[in-house]
């Protein structure tokens, strides 16, 4: 689907000056914005006043810039919870084969479950890739067998269990 869209856009591009807002490339960040983001990557809890002092601008500038960055979805400051610290010891990557319904439709339904933390429509081996978290293996089994497997359109599941996560850093996300 995305491929199709891209091709269409490329065809439509020549001679057209009115770009669809969603497809417009993100505006380039000014050096001051980059500095603010760099500081907030280190610590999202730094106060505007201290941030302003660190990068040598006034506090109002930081406040305005940051608000603009957040409202344009260029950046967001979030609290990320460590899965293990939150008691989620079983994390699975599950390929989903879909039948009789569109993958996106099934994906949207799966996305409503709290335990399903990522959902992607994929090209490749399966129709969807999802990540499921659970407190233990028994709970994971329950979610896969009693919840996900019963969603209309879910045909087969291909789960793999994450044993040791060496890196999981969602610094770049679709906002």
């Amino acid at each position: 689907m995305a491929d199709e869209k891209q091709t269409k856009r490329k065809k439509a591009a020549p001679g057209r000056s009115t770009a669809v807002p969603n497809d417009a490339p993100p505006p380039a960040l000014e050096p001051i914005d980059e500095k603010i983001i760099a500081e907030l990557r280190q610590s999202g809890r730094i106060s505007n006043r201290n941030l302003a002092r660190t990068i040598d601008v006034n506090e109002a500038t930081v406040r305005t810039r940051l608000r603009k960055l957040e409202s344009s979805d260029a950046v967001r400051v979030v609290a990320m919870r460590d899965l293990t610290a939150m008691g989620f010891n079983a994390i699975a990557a599950v390929g989903v084969q879909v039948k009789g319904r569109s993958a996106a439709e099934v994906g949207r339904e799966l996305a409503q479950f709290e335990e399903v933390i990522t959902v992607n429509v994929t090209i490749g081996m399966y129709d969807l890739e999802v990540q499921v978290v659970a407190h233990d293996i028994a709970e994971l089994d329950r979610i896969l067998t009693d919840v996900i497997a019963r969603v209309d359109g879910v045909e087969r599941l291909f789960p793999g269990l994450s044993m040791k996560i060496l890196k999981y850093n969602p610094e770049w996300v679709p906002l």
Binding site: A79, M80, D82, T84, L110, V121, Y168
Partner: peptide
């Protein structure tokens, strides 16, 4: 192809 959900509240 298509992010339907990406819960960035989680990480390791």
């Amino acid at each position: 192809q298509n992010f339907i959900k990406h819960d960035f509240r989680y990480c390791a």
